[in-house]
Design a protein around this nucleic acid. Structure first.
Lengths: 149, 149
DNA sequence: TTTCGAGGTTTCTTTAAGAGACTCTGAGGA
DNA sequence: TCCTCAGAGTCTCTTAAAGAAACCTCGAAA
């Protein structure tokens, strides 16, 4: 499609932004996750221009985050998350959690998350994969890894 | 500064994107988190234009994510994360985790995270705040919350 | 046979990003 | 005292992307 903007950096954040960092992309993924999966529905829900929505959907499909599936036996399509895309939902939940905490104001969170495993309303909580304790900004040191160009 | 793009939506993801969703903003936060905190250093590290860097830094300061602190008794400033900004680092770690998993390729992750609490190399793992079990895309239902306009 | 709805294209205008030269300020040195 | 320098931006101009809105295509149904 076009040259990536951040991709030359040996940084997984930059690489991730090359896939989902363009304007609207996270909201498109949110819509698809929430079941708004058809072109016109996403377009109406977000108020995005059709041209940009076309570009974003194509890019997300190329990157393997969404798949375009026919429905109704005509040239009509729905977009669905792939495994790679579903794995991005935790990022969306973390973003939503931050917005709930810092931007929601008096009214409280606009969306609640019910966890299947326990059946309760909860939110996502980042923990260390090794010890299970909380993992926040001050809890980590950054070290060069094997792929640090 | 200017009208927000997504802000009218009753969605914490959209609201979060109004704060840190513009191009380069997550990478600026990554730099500041990693200790690259001065204007010229960030500019050189990212290769961003000075004009856009100025705009982004102003916006992030206005939003309370960064603070601009003098150093060296002259009109020289460093940018630091506020508590609100530090709380965004978990989002950066989740983004990095996704990039590590899906985009790092042969070479492996460019950056490793050592967790202070346990001293080990780990990665961030999203868990339910209620039961502590994993919280992924298929593990949650979305429900309207009190702030759902 | 025309109409309709889904899913796009195309064209044109407006806005934002990139590149790079220029400015301002106080410190330190000759 | 004057000169130079580094840091932290501005300013101007060019190029690229987003927004708005009309248009096109295909097959199904009326």
């Amino acid at each position: 499609m076009q040259r990536t903007r951040f991709g030359e950096m040996a940084c997984s954040i930059a690489r991730t932004l090359d896939v989902i960092g363009e304007p609207w992309s996270p909201l498109i993924l949110r819509d698809v996750w929430a079941g708004v999966s058809r072109f016109d529905h996403i377009q109406a829900d977000l108020g995005i221009s059709r041209k940009v929505l076309t570009e974003r959907l194509n890019h997300l499909v190329e990157q393997g985050v969404l798949q375009r599936l026919p429905y109704d036996a005509r040239p009509r399509y729905e977009y669905h998350l792939t495994a790679k895309g579903a794995d991005l939902v935790e990022m969306l939940m973390v973003m939503a959690r931050w917005g709930d905490r810092w931007l929601a104001g008096e009214a409280g969170p606009p969306v609640l998350y019910r966890h299947h495993t326990c059946g309760q309303i909860g939110h996502v909580d980042p923990r260390c994969s090794h010890c299970g304790e909380p993992m926040h900004a001050d809890d980590v040191d950054l070290l060069p890894g094997p792929g640090s160009a």
